[in-house]
Design a protein around this nucleic acid. Structure first.
Length: 891
RNA sequence: GGGCGGAUAGCUCAGUUGGGAGAGCACAGCCCUUACAAGGCUGGGGUCACAGGUUCGAGCCCUGUUCCGCCUACCA
């Protein structure tokens, strides 16, 4: 047979991927229907940052979501995968600011309006990047519904939510200590602070009493804050310090006099048991300050420099000031000592600057009432988190949640819908921009701040569907089906969506949350640009093809914590892609003049006789695989699904089935030929369909060339295969297992005794029970796969004298090797086998002799062991017999 | 401080109701057998981290220990 396939020898993804993606889009196959009789299936995409570009984490997210969406679409659901991007307030503003800096200007020079125009420009220019990259991954999103968190519609949702929460008293404004990033010049929520453990120092300062001898020693990790101290606190129960309460001490250098107060918060066992209190620069001190009516002195400005209140240190950077304070107090003899001290320091999650606890006026969401509902929803199973281990973290965080600081002192984002009247101090919170105050004044100032980015993304599952209007989309697709994301944004985003969805839709935003692992580099390190260990998905797909990359990610997606990503594995799955490709070539080479029929016809009437064992077997296996893929996907076991398909296609379909039908294809029996090729095409077509959600491009490319009755013009809308009744054929599977035993037995002898593959062997098989006829019926398979020229089969056959042997449960296989055999090699080979069998036997024997086992183990297990015992025993005897014979011959 | 996860073949990892452990890669041997050398066949390789316990039986369940990783927290 010549290489007359119309397909190239190797699969090259480049042009093919774009071709089919454009085709799907043009046909509108990814578009959801607003109304449909079909059940809905909806996923909202975790919106990537609009200025971002695709990293490997997105790639995993996208792949898993696309697998689910394509699977459900093929399974007949009205599917919606809703795409979009996030304005990503601080992140985007930082990017644009960096850009401005390079141009020698900054946002303050531009002014607010101009700056925002600049960001929109930036968005226009780069916002499409990530979207195009998602498309290149094959994402089957409904692009007609693409949204952006700063869209008009979504902005309306944001204002609606803000106003409603305010009206219910769940949003308030006040002066509190918040996390402040001196570089980004904004407040951060607790979540936006990353803690890092460092080896720091604990400094002990002596504060002298006023008007009497003596001092009290306080300890601090941030010496510069002493400039803002307005008290020293001790625990009221602390016997050592009772006498101090009510006394006054004087701060070194700046000479401020401050009282010593009693507060139960103080832990007597830590440090000296006396605490310096800096109400404007520490969360706890803030509360102590409130309880004792202490002054709040802000010694720092928003950019991390010392303020006017810092006396001689004013204008100094906070860390420079720290050094100077230590030096000065040491010189004055007020530094008693310094100890090493382990502590954790908070950094801004966007720019990594050390954050400062900072007193300022901010907006907050009173979160407890929302959190309570969100806890209930998970507890009673309305929202199911997969894997369920994450529920603990979720509850832990939710139960200890603190009010959410939602105002940010940046410009890019949803501006807070609050206006202040300069005349009468009225505060107006409104959905629309008000023109006048109640007092008649039109001099209204809108709040300068914008909302936390996560405030708008928290509304994503319903704001994107048209809320606050009661749209068809909302009715059809809310609650959505599943949310797929990494655990890094479980609190940031997932928890807040659950709270907001329950609050405003009175219904959970999604039934399932599937949390996948995070991708790390080969050595387990977090991927980061600064480490230079980032795997660029675009480079990977360019080199190996998108399908291979997607399949790798799916195969990696076991339900663990992290994934060590290795390009080698992608390479391995590219081989798999190529294997699949070559089946297509094989088919096209064999199809020529034979033609083919639908498999259903083969199974009906007389044609059934043309269905040989190999064909019945693969159809049976296929039906099992169909069932498995559907059930593993239902349970989000992507890796199991991927492995099952890999195993089936490569090792069952290619290694066994294709090899077995070759004699049928190359023979003269036309009926057999048609049956073989028809079955192969059928199985292959179904396999491609099963694989399509994982590797959409190559499967579509090949599927289009298959000459089967299709009914539809794209694989992406073909019905997803399910296990059909009546195809499962355990008789065929049992027979096939025997054939496989014979073949692998002979191959094993050949391999281990180093007999050339080109040498055709003679085999003698002594059978048990009914196996004789089964083997005889299928003798062509054996001779083809084991490369034998002559096979003798019988139940009462006399074993040849000098032969290599393989013992299987229902037969003994002999390969006479007159003139070829290396007796020692065969004896040692059998010796190994003997040893293995001996240890197996003694294990089972011990079990069966154990009275407790017989008494307590389930019957089925006992029977199983008894059967094994017999099997091992027979095998042992057979092997021993053969060894004896060979030894005799060798003498 | 609290919580969670991991420790299984040389490497990366599966192992879903407890019944003597699997894959991929790597390695070794033989083969360009007419879909595929990005391939085929064969093979070697594991006290399932350690110590106890429950059980007739433990990689799996319980307790403790060690090492790694992550999340979380207001001990100045």
């Amino acid at each position: 047979m010549s290489d007359n396939s119309m397909l190239d020898k190797r699969y090259s993804p480049e042009d093919i991927e774009k071709k089919w993606y454009d085709f799907w889009i043009e046909k509108g196959y990814f578009r959801a229907r607003e109304k449909s009789d079909a059940p809905s299936y909806c996923i909202v995409i975790p919106p990537p940052n609009v200025t971002g570009s695709l990293h490997i984490g997105h790639a995993l997210d996208i792949t898993l979501q696309d697998i689910m969406i394509r699977w459900k679409r093929m399974s007949g659901f009205n599917t919606l995968w809703l795409p979009g991007t996030d304005h990503a307030g601080i992140a985007t503003q930082n990017v644009v600011e960096k850009h401005l800096k390079a141009k020698g200007t900054d946002r303050h020079a531009l002014g607010r309006e101009k700056f925002i125009e600049n960001v929109w420009e930036w968005k226009k220019q780069y916002g499409g990047t990530i979207i195009n990259q998602l498309k290149s991954m094959g994402a089957s999103c409904d692009w007609s519904r693409e949204r952006f968190t700063l869209d008009e519609g979504l902005s309306r949702a944001v204002r609606e939510v803000f106003v409603r929460l305010y009206e219910e008293g769940l949003i308030y404004r006040g002066d509190y200590i918040i996390n402040w990033c001196p570089r980004c010049h904004t407040a951060l929520s607790d979540l936006e602070v990353e803690h890092e453990d460092v080896q720091g120092k604990l400094y002990y300062f002596k504060y002298n009493f006023v008007n009497e001898e003596g001092y009290v020693t306080v300890a601090t990790t941030r010496p510069e804050t002493y400039l803002g101290d307005t008290a020293v606190a001790v625990n009221p129960e602390d016997e050592r310090y009772k006498y101090l309460i009510g006394k006054t001490v004087k701060l070194p250098v700046i000479q401020r006099e401050i009282p010593i107060v009693a507060d139960e918060f103080v832990d007597s066992s830590f440090g000296t048991g006396a605490v310096k209190v800096t109400p404007a620069h520490d969360t706890n001190d803030f509360e102590i300050g409130q309880r004792h009516n202490l002054p709040f002195i802000k010694i720092m400005t928003g950019d991390g420099k010392m303020s006017e209140e810092a006396g001689p240190y004013r204008g100094q950077d906070r860390f420079e000031c720290r050094k100077n304070v230590i030096k000065d107090l040491d010189e004055l003899g007020q530094l008693e000592k310094m100890d090493d001290h382990d502590m954790s320091i908070g950094h801004c999650y966007r720019c990594k600057t050390v954050v400062e606890p900072y007193l300022s006026k901010q907006w907050f969401v009173k979160i407890k009432p929302l959190a309570d509902e969100a806890i209930k929803a998970v507890k009673d199973g309305r929202v199911k988190i997969v894997p369920s281990g994450w529920e603990n973290s979720y509850f832990d965080w939710m139960e200890n949640i603190k009010d959410w600081c939602i105002s940010r002192q940046i410009w890019w984002g949803h501006r807070i819908p609050v206006w202040y009247c300069d005349k009468c101090e009225e505060i107006i919170v409104s959905r629309d921009t008000p023109e006048k105050c109640k007092c008649g004044s039109s001099e209204l100032r809108q709040d300068e701040d914008v909302l936390d980015t996560w405030f708008s993304s928290g509304l994503w599952p319903f704001s994107t569907l048209g809320w606050p209007d009661n749209t068809d989309d909302l009715k059809t697709f809310y609650p959505t089906s599943v949310l797929i994301t990494g655990f890094d944004i479980l609190f940031f985003w997932v928890a807040r969506m659950i709270m907001m969805g329950l609050k405003f839709m009175k219904d959970e935003p999604f039934h399932h949350v599937y949390i996948h692992a995070l991708l790390r580099d080969e050595s387990g390190q977090k991927m980061s640009k600064s480490k230079g260990n980032v795997v660029d998905p675009l480079k990977t797909t360019a080199e190996y093809g998108t399908d291979a990359f997607r399949f790798t990610l799916a195969a990696y997606a076991a339900q663990g914590r992290d994934i060590k990503f290795s390009e080698k594995r992608v390479e391995g799955y590219r081989h798999f892609i190529n294997k699949i490709w070559n089946v297509a070539r094989f088919i096209s080479m064999n199809l020529e003049e034979t033609g083919f029929v639908a498999v259903k016809e083969l199974y009906s009437g007389e044609s059934r006789n043309s269905v040989t064992l190999a064909n019945r077997w693969i159809l049976s296996r296929l039906s099992t695989v169909c069932a498995e893929i559907n059930s593993t996907l239902e349970e989000y076991r992507f890796n199991d699904a991927a492995n099952t398909l890999y195993q089936f296609v490569w090792h069952e379909l290619c290694d066994w089935h294709v090899e077995m039908i070759k004699p049928e294809l190359y023979g003269d029996d036309k009926e057999l030929k048609i049956a073989a090729i028809s079955t192969l095409i059928h199985v292959y077509e179904v396999a491609l369909s099963l694989l399509h959600p994982f590797m959409p491009f190559i499967t579509e490319e090949i599927w289009q060339t298959l000459p089967v009755e299709k009914g539809v013009d794209s694989l992406c809308i073909r019905k997803y295969p399910v296990a059909e009744d009546g195809i499962k054929d355990s008789e065929a599977e049992n027979k096939m297992n025997m054939i496989m035993d014979v073949v692998s037995g002979i191959r094993s002898i050949r391999g281990e005794l180093n007999i050339s593959p080109s040498l055709e062997l003679k085999a003698v098989i002594r059978t048990l029970d009914n196996t004789e006829s089964i083997l005889n019926e299928n003798i062509t398979y054996i001779s083809k796969l084991a490369r034998t020229r002559e096979i003798e089969i019988g139940s009462d056959i006399e074993p040849p004298k000098n032969a290599a042997t393989a013992i299987k449960p229902s037969m003994e296989i002999f390969v006479p090797l007159k003139g070829l055999i290396d007796f020692d090699a065969e004896i040692s080979r059998l010796g190994k086998e003997l040893k293995k069998t001996e240890s197996n036997l003694s294990f089972v024997k011990r079990k069966l002799h154990n009275k407790e086992f017989i008494k307590k183990a389930p019957k089925a297990v006992i029977e199983e062991n008894k059967a094994k015992y017999n099997e091992y025993l027979e095998k042992l005897n057979a092997i021993q017999g053969n060894i004896d014979k060979l030894e005799k011959l060798g003498e």
